[in-house]
Amino acid sequence: MTSAVSFAKVSRHFGKVKAVDQVDLEIAEGSFFAMLGPSGSGKTTCLRLISGFEQPTAGHIRIFGEDVSQTPPNRRSVNTVFQDYALFPHLNVRDNVAYGPMVAGVPKAQRHAKAEEMLDLVKLGSYGDRKPGQLSGGQRQRVALARALINEPRVLLLDEPLGALDLKLREAMQDELKSLQKRLGITFVFVTHDQHEALSMADQLVIFSDGKIAQQGSPEDVYARPNSRFVADFVGSSNVLSPDLTRALGGPAKWASLRPEKTMLAAPAKAAVKGTVTAVRYLGAASRVVLDVGGNEIAALVPAGQDLPVQGAEAGIAFEPDALHVMEREV
C-alpha cells in the first residue's frame, strides 16, 4: 500500500538554520499521525512542506505516491486547520465553510447545502449566519475543521489544533477529533508540542528534535521504550538514569529511563538505592515525590491514599524489574 505521505531525504534549510534535515517519513493511509516536538524542532515546517507553503531545499515529498515538488498548495488534495484558524472575518460562517467549493465554481445553492452538511458534522448546524468574530474559540475551531473537510481532502493537516482551547474543551475536542477521523477514514496529521495530546490521540507518532526525527512508533512504543534521553525526557518527563545509577539499580552500565508512575518508594533499609526527599507535590489523583539520589533527581508518582514521606526524609527506590528501560542511543 502506498503511504498517504512519504518524505525521502527531505530537507528545508533557511540559510544556515536546518529547520528540517534529511527526514525520511512514511505516513500510512487512514492513520491518525502526530508530529511531536518542542518549538523549533521542525514539526511545523514538516506540516507546511506537506501543505506546500514551504518547498524542500532537498529531497522528495510524495502524496499518495505522486511527487508534489511542482504542485502549489491550491492543487494538493490536502487541507489544513490552521493554528489561529484563519477564518475569513468578512464572511459569515456558512460562506467560510463554502469557500473551497466557491473557488472551485460550485453554484451557490449547492455549496451552501454542502456547507450546512459540514456544519452539522461539527455540531454547528444553526451558526451559518454568524460572523467568525461572534464565535467562541472552540466554535471557531469547529468552523475551521468544517471548512477544511468540505473539500474532501485525502490528508487533513492540523497545526496545534487544540493549543488555544482551555483544558476541558481540549479534552472534549480530542475525543471528537478521534471519532471524526475514524468515521471519515481520512489520514489526519497533526502537530503538537503537548505529549499528552499526541499520546492520547495518535496511532502513530514521530518525535522531532533539531530538525531530525528522534523516534517514530506507536504511542505505547515511544512511551514505554524511548530510544534516547531526549525522548524519555520529552515524552512524559521520565526519570533519566545515568549509567552508574542504572548499574546500582541492577541494570547494565547504560543510560536508562524509569517512568515516575512505575517508581515506588520503599523503606530505606530494604532498597539498593536511596535518596533524600526534596519535594512533595500534590496532583490530585497522585502525589509527585522527588528524591535526590547522589545529585540525580528521581521522581516517583505515589497514588492517593498511600503514605507520603515528609521533605528531608530518606526513602528507598523500588520498581518492577521490567520497568527499567535501557536506551540504545547515547544522546
Binding site: 507553503f53 492543487r75 490536502v78 490552521f82 477564518l87 475569513f88 473557488v103
Partner: peptide
C-alpha cells in the same frame, strides 16, 4: 495564514486577491 488558508482551500492567486 489567511492567504495560506485561501490557497489551501484551492484558490488561485487571483481568487485570493478578489475574495480575501
Amino acid at each position: 495564514s489567511m492567504l495560506e488558508a485561501s490557497a489551501d482551500l484551492g484558490a488561485t492567486r487571483g481568487q485570493t486577491l478578489r475574495t480575501v
